[in-house]
Amino acid sequence: MPLTEKDVRYVAELAHLDLTDEEIRKFQPQLDAILGYMQKLNQLDTTQVEPMAQVIAPGGVSLPLRPDRIHESLPQEVALANAPEAGAGHFKVPSVIERE
């Protein structure tokens, strides 16, 4: 099924991207071509194949745990130094609760 402009708008909404109409028109055929190419994987029967979610070298151990110790962390003013807007030791954001 080809990817429509409506699909592109829906995905942009999920991805929190405020795309312009021009961007939507440009991306639609490009994304459609790439997703079409990806259909190639359907040539392979993978019913018996385990998905590989991470690299584990032969004989290797997955997800080693480290001791849960408290260590030094960034001071508050340093952690806030790159914030677009900060105040009273917090990140400032626009009002979260939207009015009807």
């Binding site: 995905v11 999920l14 991805a15 991207l17 991306f27 994304l31 997703l35 939207e98």
Partner: peptide
């Protein structure tokens, strides 16, 4: 105007075309 719009406008203004393309593909 509001939090969601801030996210969307920030990301549209801050990312270039290839990054947006890949975020779109990955989201899809």
């Amino acid at each position: 105007d509001g939090l969601r719009e801030m996210y969307k406008k920030t990301r549209d203004a801050g990312f270039g075309a290839e990054v947006k393309r890949r975020i779109m593909l990955g989201t899809y």
